[in-house]
């Protein structure tokens, strides 16, 4: 067995050439394809990461905006609540004022009604009292009382001014002497005489009966009345009582 050195060298060169050729047409192209794909994958991953980072930033911005919206919403709600509270307080205050006004008006009306009622009651009481007094005094219609009233009438005529007395006596109109009950002739003459003396003249005298007077003597002319009776007194008392607050 011999070793062909030329053949050995040629085979070595053949394999060396094959190494070079396969390196150019197989190993390197395939390895480059793998590298390109890996680079593309890395680039896509980087792009994805960049996109993810961008999305994260946008999400953070959105979260920030949401937080801003939430805080703004809370501020608006707080402002609205404050406004509503102020409006409610103002409305309550207004309502309170109106209620106070209404209560005041009602109290005033109640006081007025009470006052009117009291006045009305007082008037009724006075009328009732006058009626009671009139009935009670009606029992005392006697000559003594009549004389007392005549004396008071004469005194009242005397208290008139001379011009008034002169006007009464000079008037052509008849002077009416009003009594509660029709007096007897003697009493009439006495009364007429006393009145004429008090007036200081001789005017026309006529007697008129008015039972409402209860008791008393009054002078009446067309434009003149001189009251002097229990009815007039009671009426005066009743008016005074009615006018008392």
């Amino acid at each position: 067995m011999t070793l062909d050195w030329w053949g050995l060298s040629l085979q070595a060169v053949n394999v060396l050439i094959l190494v070079w050729l396969l390196g150019r047409v197989f190993w390197r192209p395939v390895a480059d394809a793998i590298s390109r794909r890996q680079e593309a994958a890395v680039a896509m991953l980087d792009e994805g990461k960049a996109l993810q980072a961008k999305v994260d930033v946008q999400l953070a911005e959105i979260d920030e905006t949401r937080r801003g919206i939430a805080s703004e919403r809370e501020a608006i709600l707080a402002e609205a609540m404050a406004t509503a509270d102020a409006v409610a307080k103002a409305t309550l205050r207004d309502a309170q004022t109106r209620a106070d006004t209404l209560i005041g008006a009602a109290r005033t009306a109640i006081d007025r009604d009470k006052h009117d009622a009291r006045k009305e009651n007082a008037a009724k009481v006075a009328e009732l009292s006058v009626e009671i007094a009139a009935r009670l005094l009606g029992r005392f219609s006697s000559s003594v009382i009549q004389a007392a009233f005549l004396e008071q009438l004469v005194e009242a005529i005397a208290n008139l001014s001379p011009s008034d007395r002169a006007a009464l006596t000079a008037s052509e109109t008849v002077i009416e002497i009003v009594t509660a009950s029709e007096p007897e002739d003697v009493e009439m003459a006495g009364i007429e005489k006393a009145v004429k003396n008090a007036l200081g003249g001789t005017p026309g005298i006529r007697f008129v009966t008015d039972p409402d007077m209860i008791a008393g003597l009054e002078l009446r002319q067309a434009h003149f009345v001189l009251r002097n009776s229990w009815r007039a007194d009671l009426e005066t008392i009743r008016k005074e009582v009615a006018n008392v607050d």
Partner: peptide
């Protein structure tokens, strides 16, 4: 050996002519 070399080189060239990013 030459025949094997030729087959390998031609075959490798034929197989790796259209390498793409989408394999």
């Amino acid at each position: 050996t030459w025949a094997i070399m030729a087959i390998l080189v031609i075959g490798a060239y034929a197989l790796t002519r259209r390498l793409d990013l989408r394999p």
